[in-house]
Each structure stands twice: as structure tokens, then as C-alpha cells.
């Protein structure tokens, strides 16, 4: 990802809107005995699209915003979200997204990791209450809801950040070239990513 000042503003806006939506909407809508958490979904999407640095910084900023807006211990949410954002970014730097199922599945898994990390830190910092085994269910539900939320959220964020994405720019150029040559390009939010990365490596 090429982070220009304009793209930086878009990234900041995405993180802010995600935290605002979480505090004002998703946290007030119980689902499957829990609440959906859109913030790790957005952080993982930013990591998958922008790499480890983008994912880590987004996780840090989102965590600080959450702790300030909801009144938690500063830094705890940041650590959990940074873990998810960094892992997503490292995945993006090491592997290709070969299927449209990869972002939701990876997001689900990393949402579970973030929930686990958050719980582990709370345990480390001291919980003045009995911890129920149902916490495991909470982690599984968070992973499931994260995977479902990623289906609309990932393409949406990809669309917002498209001007900064190297893969998408290369794909757009390739599509334009094939259109000029009279061939139809592949379409869809995740199509042809592998081929483009391979093409870029060859350059």
C-alpha cells in the first residue's frame, strides 16, 4: 500500500468510523449470546490490504480510541488488536489471497485470537470474578461473527483504499490493456490477485 496523506486520512476515517459504529450500534445489538465486534474485522482487513505496519498501527489507534470512548484500561484493547493486525499483515506479505474465502476465514480466526488475547490480558491484570467456561463460547462466537462481518467489510474497505493498493492498480492497468486488446478481464472483488502479484514479482 502506498500511504499518501490522502490515504492516511482515509485510513484514520475508517478506524474512527469503525470504533464509532461499534460503540453506538454493534455493542447494542446482541447476537448469538454475544455482540459482534467490527473493530478487529476492520483492523484485519487493513492488515490484509496494507501489510504488517498498517495493520499494527491501525490496531493500536483503534484500541486507544475504544479505551477512550468506552472507558477501559488504556492499552489493553490496543495490544489485542495489534496482534490481529500484525498477523494479518504478515499473512499478506507472505502468501497470496488465492480464494475469496481466505479473507473471511482469516478474519474469523484472527478475531478469535484477538478475543483470546484480550481475555488473557484481563486475566493477567486481575479479574475480581469467577471466569466461566462459557468464555470459550464467547471466543468461538466472536470468530464466527468476525468471519460473517468480513464478507461485506473487506470488499468495502478495499474499495475505499483502492487508489493506494499496488495489486489493484496493476490489475486495473492489466484490465485496461486487455480491454484495448479486445479481451474481457476477470471480475469480482478478489479475482486475479494471485496473477497480479506474480506479475509484479516478475518485474
Amino acid at each position: 500500500m502506498i500511504v499518501t496523506p490522502r490515504i492516511f486520512l482515509r485510513l484514520a476515517a475508517i478506524v474512527f468510523v469503525a470504533v464509532l459504529l461499534q460503540a453506538a450500534f454493534f455493542s447494542g445489538v446482541p447476537l448469538l449470546g454475544s455482540v459482534a465486534n467490527v473493530v478487529p474485522v476492520v483492523v484485519v482487513a487493513l492488515g490484509l490490504l496494507g501489510g504488517a505496519v498498517t495493520g499494527t498501527v491501525s490496531g493500536f489507534a483503534a484500541g486507544i480510541l475504544i479505551d477512550v470512548m468506552v472507558g477501559g484500561t488504556l492499552g489493553v484493547s490496543s495490544l489485542a488488536l495489534m496482534a490481529a493486525g500484525y498477523a494479518a499483515g504478515r499473512w499478506r506479505e507472505g502468501y497470496d489471497i488465492v480464494s475469496s474465502l481466505v479473507p473471511p476465514l482469516l478474519t474469523g480466526a484472527l478475531c478469535g485470537v484477538a478475543a483470546l488475547a484480550y481475555g488473557a490480558m484481563q486475566l493477567t491484570l486481575g479479574i475480581d470474578a469467577t471466569v466461566s467456561p462459557l468464555v470459550v463460547r464467547e471466543v468461538v462466537v466472536q470468530a464466527l461473527l468476525g468471519a460473517l462481518l468480513a464478507v461485506p467489510v473487506f470488499p468495502l474497505i478495499r474499495r475505499v483504499l483502492r487508489p493506494a493498493l499496488v495489486d489493484d492498480s496493476a490489475r486495473a492497468r492489466a484490465k485496461a490493456a486487455s480491454a484495448r486488446a479486445g479481451f474481457g478481464g476477470r471480475s469480482g472483488p478478489f479475482a486475479n490477485i494471485r496473477g497480479d502479484r506474480g506479475h509484479l514479482r516478475g518485474l
Binding site: Q22, A23, A24, F26, S27, G28, S34, V35, N37, V39, I66, M69, V70, G71, G72, S77, A115, Y118, G119, Q122, I127, V135, E138
Partner: peptide, 15 residues
């Protein structure tokens, strides 16, 4: 009026 809910079952707080 409640304006925000905590995002986790670990934190039970509202604003």
C-alpha cells in the same frame, strides 16, 4: 440515556 456499551463480555460498562 446510554450512549455507548462496552465491546466485550470482560468489560461490563456503559457510558
Amino acid at each position: 440515556t446510554v450512549t455507548a456499551h462496552s465491546t466485550s463480555t470482560w468489560y461490563g460498562s456503559i457510558r
